[in-house]
Simulated assay, not measured.
Amino acid sequence: MKKVIFKILKIALPLLLGFFLIYYSYNQFTDLERDKIYSYLLDANYAWIILSLFFAFLSHLSRAWRWNYMLETLGATPKFITNVMAIGAGYAMNLIIPRSGEISRAAIVNRSDQVPMDKAIGTIIAERVLDLIVLLIITAVAVLTAGDAIVNFFKTRIDDAFAKTEPAKILLYSGIFLVLVILIVFISRRIQLFNRLKSFILGMKEGFMTIWTMKKKWWYFLHTLFIWGMYLLMFYVSIFAIPGIETIPISAILCAFVAGSFAVAFTNGGFGAYPYFIAQVLLVFGISEPLGTSFGWILWLSQTILVLVYGSLSLLLLSLKGSLSGK
């Protein structure tokens, strides 16, 4: 029962946050501003978006290739197409249940090449750690190039929000937040997840350490740079899809990119949070909220469609492969 509650909360809380941000964002606009958003969405030049999706797919292929450098250290070399399908399936699963994609990726190579689940997950965790380091570096560059604009903007917004909020509401919201935190901590401790998975964690540690023991570590790092280069290029070419966005400076592009990247961690695939965060960041650089919101939704919808198509095809091919091998 406790496990079921924990799983429900894990899925429900990010979704609720996403729905709340959509509701909040939609209701703050006037009818005229909503009409502008619809107009931006309809009149966008989607040729640039298709090009951005091409760069995104190249990053997925590079991620599939990169993964084998770590798996080789574990004595396995899955076929490239297997890795491509595993990653596609993983992305699709993450849209439904956050972080379930890592497990599905590991399960696929476990079935195809008998890579131990714990060690395969360890290699994926190593990927995430390295990717996080790159994202933090980009974040630092974005903040430095933007100067004090970001800090001053959010400080002003927070001050205004508290100035307009009644003390009773602040106490109520703080109480709700505190109860949620206590509930999550209580459930986590009762499940005693780490104690039950001690041996599993040791296996993941071995997989994680392969990032330093692999023979082709420099190729691995080069693929990492290529992947993030494609992410940035994907975001950059998208600014030409809507007139008015293409004039933003590099600092704005980097800040919006970082905001969108972190938004994905808050909700399922950035649902609700991605367009909202991007619109708020672009507002700092003089882009109106309707225009920034439209840009955010175009990016999120296009990337989500890519993940759904890519993931669905991967799951279908894996299913057919499993059926054929079972005969």
Rank of each mutant, 00 (worst) to 15 (best):
K3P: 05
V4R: 02
V4Q: 08
I5G: 02
I5P: 01
I5R: 06
I8P: 01
I8G: 00
L9G: 13
A12Q: 10
L17Q: 02
L21D: 02
L21I: 08
L21K: 05
L21T: 09
Y26T: 14
N27T: 10
F29G: 01
F29H: 03
F29M: 14
D35N: 14
Y40V: 04
A44Y: 08
L51G: 10
L51R: 04
L51F: 13
S52Y: 06
W65A: 12
R66I: 05
W67H: 03
N68M: 08
Y69G: 08
E72R: 13
A76K: 15
T77H: 14
T82Q: 06
N83K: 03
M85L: 15
M85W: 12
A86F: 05
I87P: 04
Y91R: 03
Y91M: 05
A92Y: 09
I97H: 08
P98G: 11
S100P: 09
S104Y: 10
A106T: 07
S112L: 04
Q114D: 14
V115C: 10
T123A: 10
A126M: 05
D131N: 04
I133K: 01
I137F: 03
I137V: 15
A140D: 02
T145G: 00
A149Y: 13
T156E: 15
D160Q: 14
A161D: 07
A163M: 09
K164I: 12
K164S: 13
E166P: 00
K169R: 12
I170G: 08
I170A: 11
L171G: 06
L171C: 01
I176A: 09
L178Q: 10
L183V: 15
I184T: 14
L197R: 07
G203V: 10
M204E: 12
M204V: 13
M204G: 15
F208M: 12
T210C: 14
W212I: 11
W212V: 11
M214N: 04
M214S: 09
K216D: 07
K217V: 11
W218H: 12
W219R: 12
F221T: 02
L225V: 14
W228S: 00
G229D: 08
M230N: 11
A241N: 00
E246W: 05
V258M: 01
G260M: 04
A265Y: 04
G269H: 04
P275D: 10
Y276T: 02
Q280C: 02
Q280D: 06
L282Y: 03
V284G: 08
I287V: 15
S288G: 03
G292C: 07
I305F: 08
I305Y: 00
I305P: 02
V309P: 04
S312K: 06
L315A: 13
S319V: 00
S323C: 03
K327N: 15
